[in-house]
Structure formats: structure tokens, C-alpha cells
Amino acid sequence: MELSFSLLVQQLFIGLALGSIYVLIGVGLSLIFGLLTVVNFAHGAFYMVGAYVAVYIFEKTGNFWACLVLVPLAVGALGLATERWLVRPLYGRGLDYPLLLTFGLAYVLVDSVRMIFGVQGEHFSTPELLQGTVDMGFGPFPIYRIFLVGLCATLLLALWLFIEKTRLGLIVRAGSRDPLVLKVLGIDVDRVWLLIFGIGTALAGLAGLLAAPLRGVNPEMGGPVLIEAFVITVIGGMGSLVGAIVAGLLVGVVVAMTTLFQPELAELSIFALMALVLIVRPNGLFGREGLMS
């Protein structure tokens, strides 16, 4: 096979599209860690719950767009409850307490879904409007994946605007630096944390819904996702939104290029990239120092 220029371009594009899925998967985890310093091991489980909520809502309504609105709300609500009654009592006790709690919660969620929906997995079709391919000049490309890239970009822009440009965003940023000052100023910090945890889990649920037409739905689907999300968070720098975006796209491209030349190493390449980044920049590409200490 000749290694043509168009094949390389196509592979690069596929890598970027794949990267946007990685960004979607990673951003919720990164947000919660960056602002709350909670390492959310249930991230993959919330992603899986998102997909199952989508299956349920789609069965009732037959409408993908309804899922797109309701799934983040439902999973976000579950996240709010988790923060309020499970995670909150553990603040100030060190990194490993919420880590262990969410680790256990992941098991509870996976087994609950197994009990409710069964172990066999579910089917989730690509919405009719987004089926088929378009010719991108270098070859056919699925419309649904283009939709994902667009949606991901919109979502990240909204998130960035919220954190950087709104009053609430300012409070969130201030709170992540110095919660004590915020309290002194008479701001209810607890509600800020609650909101962030809710948004982070809502994003995980949304990613689960969006991945369902690509990867199918089953109780174990969150397993590999948790690993992918962690790799992206670590490469991008713990707690950096920009970092998560750059890392997600970078991982997508690296996977795509490795697949083209050495497909056996595609899985390994993600971890090699992570090791390399950590050697050069121990806090990740855009990480703040001292977040873990």
C-alpha cells in the first residue's frame, strides 16, 4: 500500500475526531479534580449510567434530542446527591478518602445497573438524522462523528465562558484557590462545590450517551473509560480545562497515527505518551504545581 498524503490527512482527521471523544470523556473528571481536588473513581460509572438513562429515555420517548437534554440532568442530579451526602462529609480528610468512596460507589452503580437492566447490554442506534457518511474530499466520514466534534466544541466553549466570564465562574475559581477567603466574604462555598460536582458528573453522563451509538451500552463500559479519562487528565495536567482539551486531541492523534503504522502498539502508545509527558513536565502539560500535595 502506498502511504499517500491523503491517507495521512484522513488519519489525522480521524485522530482529531477521536480526540474530541476523549476530551468529552476526560473533561468531567478534570473539572471535578481541578476545582474540588476530588479524584472521582466513579467517573466511568456515571458515564455508564448516562448511557443506560439514555436507553431508558429513548425507549419511552423515541427521541434522541430529548435524551441529549434529560441525560445530563438525570446524571447530574445523581452527582448532586453523591456530593451532598457521600463526598461532602469527607472534605478536609485527604485525597484518599473521596477516592476510596467513589471507587466503591462505582461498584454499587455497576451492580445496580446489572440488576435493573441485566448483564447482556443494550442497543442504541445512531439518530436517523445523523446516520450515513459525507465525503470529506479524502474519503467518507460518518455524520455522527462530525456532530460529536461540533457538539464537543460548543460544550467546551460554554464551559469556558461559564468559568472565565460569569460571576459564578469567578466564585468557582476563587473557591478552588482559597475557600476560606470565600467563606469570610459570606459566600456559601458548599453550594459551589455541589454545583461543580453536578456539572462534572453531568458531563460524564452526556459522554456516555454520546458514545452509546459508537460503542454500544453495557454495564462494564465505564471501565476502559475511567482509564482513558485519567490518562487525559494526567497528560493535560490535573485540573486544567485547556489541558484536558489539548491532551484529548493529542491522544486521539497519537492513537490514530500509531494505528496506521503499528496497530499492535496503539493501546500502548497512550501510556507511552503519558510517561513521556510526565518525564518532561511532572505536573502535566498545563498542570498547576502542588495540587496533589
Binding site: 460503542r215 476502559p224 473509560v225 492513537v255 490514530a256 494505528t259
Partner: peptide
């Protein structure tokens, strides 16, 4: 346990 095959298809 591969979750995405898109990068295999152009080749």
C-alpha cells in the same frame, strides 16, 4: 477490548 476502530478504517 478495543472501543474505537475508526483509526483502522482508512488503511
Amino acid at each position: 477490548g478495543q472501543t474505537d476502530f475508526s483509526s483502522y478504517f482508512p488503511k
